[in-house]
Every structure is written in C-alpha cells, then in structure tokens.
C-alpha cells in the first residue's frame, strides 16, 4: 500500500478507501458463506414440512413452529426405536464426562513425568506415544472390537469410555508435556531439597500452575469425544449409541416421510454442546487446535 502514497495525495486517499471498502466486502461475503449453512439449518428447523416443500431454502419461516425440535428431541425414529435424540444425547454425556476427566488426569501425570522427571528412555516413550496420535483408528478397530467382547464390554458405555481414554492419552500427554517443559527444572530441584516428594510437588507446585492447559485439554478432549462417530458406530449397540450415531440414523432412516425440519433440529441439538464450548471459550479451543497440529 506504500506505493499508493507516492502518487498524488487526494487520489491516493480515495483509492485507499476503495481498497478498504472492497476488503471489508470480501470478508463479509466469506462470513456469509460460513454462516449460511447454519442459517439454513436453523430456518429449516422452524418451518413446517408444507412450507419447506413450497418455499425456498433461504427464506425465513412464515409460521414459526417448534414442533420439529420437540420431535427431534423426544420422538424421532432412529431405526425401529422412536425416542428422539434425548437418550443418545445423555449417552454422549455419560461417555464424554468420565472419558475427558480420566484422559486429562492421565495426561497431566504423564506430561509431568516426561517433562520434569526425565529418565533414560523417557524421550523414546514420548515419541512412541506421539506416533500413536497419528494412526488411522481403522487399524485398531478389529482387535479392539474383539478385546471389548472378551472383557464383556462390547456395545457398552464403559467400553466406549475405555476406548476414548486409551486413544486420548497421546494427545493429553502431548499437551501437558509441552506446557510443563517450559517450567524451569530448578523448581523441582529446590522443592526436592526442601523435602517435597513426587506427588507433593505435583499437587502444590504444578497443578496450581496448570489451569490454562487443563482448560485447553478438556475442551479438546470434549470436542473430540462428543464429535466422535467411528468408535461410536463400531462399538455401540441399540441403546448405547452416542448422539452422532443417533443423528446419522435419524437422517438416514428410510422409513416414512422425510422430515427435513426434524433432521435439521436434530443436527443443531447434536452440535449445541460443542458450539457453546466454542462460543464461550473460543480462545482455548483455537489454542488446542493449533497445539494439536503444530506439535511442539
């Protein structure tokens, strides 16, 4: 833009303003592009089926109706059962809460050991865990299905919690390790001189410092587990499915009239928890995303 400054001042000012205006217009158009699908989902979920068939995709609802939401929540059919999303929504809650808590705690302890109590082989262990984050889960699907069967956990919620904890450890350890590695090693040395032990140092020194990374990890794990479909569809059975699997069943069930408004209401319900987390704690969400991708 400095090249414009060398031409005559009034024209430059005008050019500059035109450029700024175009810039905002383009950014605005892209904002529309990202928002439009959400807008279409929301308006479709508030229309009656007749209005959907008669009207256009992007028209606002003429008569707002909330009955698709009620149907999606408590009576839409996922195959032969017609109880709506509600039981599956609670399944997802029951899976996510313990799985997030356990994997975060394990990650914190692992990260603390790897970053601050280095012993021979610790780096190798960390590398092995890190590679584990990248495997396509298809490669563990078959043996895990057999193992869950042998443990009597096939198709159960504890089974899904177990799977999510196991395959979450890699990322949670990575998050905490990268956070704790920035804390000077002298701190541990000094605490040891004062007679503090392994757990004492963790509880009184590291844990109080950990709030930001705990928030990042919890948000990351919650989003991953809530949005998971592969494990959910592979390791659940008729009453234990998570909400993503139930949503897919509602949308792709072939029986009866296609109720697009109910589909859209169900999709929004399934998306709400992670959307709320994003809106409330977006900063931490983005930090987790970039930390999870730009390792180290």
């Amino acid at each position: 833009m400095t090249d414009l400054a060398s031409s005559s001042p009034p024209r430059a000012g005008w050019n500059r303003r035109l450029l700024r205006w175009m810039l905002y217009a383009i950014l605005g158009l892209f904002a529309l592009y990202y928002l439009l699908p959400l807008f279409v989902m929301l308006t479709t979920s508030l229309k009656s089926l007749e209005e959907i068939r008669a009207g256009s995709l992007i028209a606002l609802p003429r008569d707002v109706t909330f009955s698709p939401w009620a149907t999606a929540w408590s009576s839409a059919c996922t195959g032969i059962q017609c109880e709506g999303l509600r039981p599956y929504f609670w399944n997802s809650v029951l899976i996510a809460i313990p799985a997030v808590a356990l994997s975060t705690m394990l990650g914190a302890m692992n990260g603390y050991v790897i970053a601050q109590w280095r012993f021979r082989g610790a780096n190798l262990i960390f590398s092995l865990m890190l590679f584990g984050c990248f495997i396509p889960f298809q490669v563990v699907l078959l043996p895990m299905a057999r193992l869950l069967g042998m443990m009597g956990l096939a198709g159960s919620i504890p089974g899904l919690i177990f799977v999510h904890v196991i395959y979450g450890i890699g990322f949670t350890t990575l998050f905490f390790r990268n956070y704790y590695v920035t804390i000077p090693a002298d701190l541990v040395k000094a605490a040891k001189v004062d007679g503090a032990g392994f757990f004492r140092i963790f509880w009184s020194i590291f844990l109080p410092l950990s709030l930001p990374i705990i928030v990042v990890t919890v948000i990351w794990q919650f989003t991953q587990i809530w949005n998971d479909f592969l494990f959910g569809v592979s390791f659940s059975e008729a009453g234990t499915q998570p909400v993503t699997v139930a949503l897919n069943n509602i949308v792709n069930s072939t029986t009866g009239v296609k109720e697009y408004n109910v589909d859209m209401a169900a999709a929004i319900i399934a998306a709400l928890p992670t959307l709320i987390v994003y809106v409330v704690a977006g900063k931490y969400f983005v930090r987790g995303l970039t930390a999870g991708s730009v390792k180290g």
Binding site: V40, L247, V251, D263, T274, L275, V277
Partner: peptide
C-alpha cells in the same frame, strides 16, 4: 465466524450439506 464449523461434528456438517 470463519472458525466455528471446526467445532461441529462431521456428521452435523454432512447433514447440513446433504440438505442444502
């Protein structure tokens, strides 16, 4: 606004675009 779709499940994204 640009980043919120990343918080959605792929199943939700698929459902929305299937309808659109």
């Amino acid at each position: 606004i640009y980043l919120y779709p990343m918080a959605l499940s792929m199943i939700v994204t698929g459902t929305a675009w299937k309808w659109i």
